[in-house]
Amino acid sequence: MEEKKAVPSFDKLIVASSPHIRAAETVDRLMWQVIIALIPAAAVSVYFFGIRSLVLMLVGVASAVLTEALVQKALKKEITIADGSAALTGLLLAFNVPANAPWWMVAVGAAFAIAVVKQTFGGLGANFVNPALAARAFMLAAWPQHMTGRFPVPLDSITAATPLAILKGTATGTLPSYLDLFIGNVGGVLGETSALALLVGGAYLIWQKVIDWRTPAGFIGTVALLTWIFGGKGGLFTGDPLYHVLAGGLILGAFFMATDYVTSPITPKGRLIFGIGCGFITVLIRLWGGYPEGVSYSILLMNLVVPFLDRWTLPRVYGVTRARA
């Protein structure tokens, strides 16, 4: 070559272990992907329940993020609010309250989720139950008057019993049609009503490979199967599985709560069993338990057995034939 040889600069060489290339995926991107997937459901909620719904979501997110920052500052840890995990928890928590819930309850609930359920156990990756669901259980026990009973009806100022409560017979009212259930034109907590919007978000997450299909498939499949077999008043196999799948928080829970990485099994087989277990407990509560809805408690209960599921579903190791210890 005729040009003068440039002296290569080798004084900033980094010596680190292989691999030297990394996939582009980051924790932050994964969390924000889930938030993006929740936008359709949030939009539908604002459309049906009005500006009040938006206020509650913003309060939940703000409280969760603020709490995370304050706790991390107090504990002299790195502040990681930009990773979106606190915002996601706040949003999911707001999705779990009815539109007429007081804003302060959402704020306290989100703070509880972050400060008590997440940070006291070591922050992101270390909590053993889903923070949003544990905070929902906390709110349900703390202020049951705001978390149960009659919920606001879409596009109206009146309240009504939820479809599942009517189905169970603990409340009276007319059951909404399948179509209303599907698009979300029913009473319920903010995020659960529109099956359509949630399915769009869930499909997006599966397409983007953010979540594993096994958990929601196992969860929803089990609920459908068991409610079909046992859900009917006229004997076995007379239940209405479609209604049980569309009503209540099943789709929200199956796609967005049960798939929470930190609190679900790490092995593919484990995730399938986890989903089936969630579905089983949900049906137990819905058909024979004290509450009309059992999705959140089923997920919380299954969260507790995740370490066992992990250990029982270890993948087969290459070249190892004997049973594992």
Binding site: I14, A16, H20, I21, R22, E25, T26, V27, L30, T80, D83, G122, G123, L124, G125, A126, D212, Y261, V262, S264, P265, I266, T267, P268, R271, D310, L314, P315, R316, V317, Y318, G319
Partner: peptide, 28 residues
Amino acid sequence: EATTLPERACIRCGRCVDACPIGLIPTF
């Protein structure tokens, strides 16, 4: 290209389990 992002806590996403050609649980 050579600068890597800082290490964060494991979120148990299971990607390493799916990727391991030997069938190990790398994060454990």
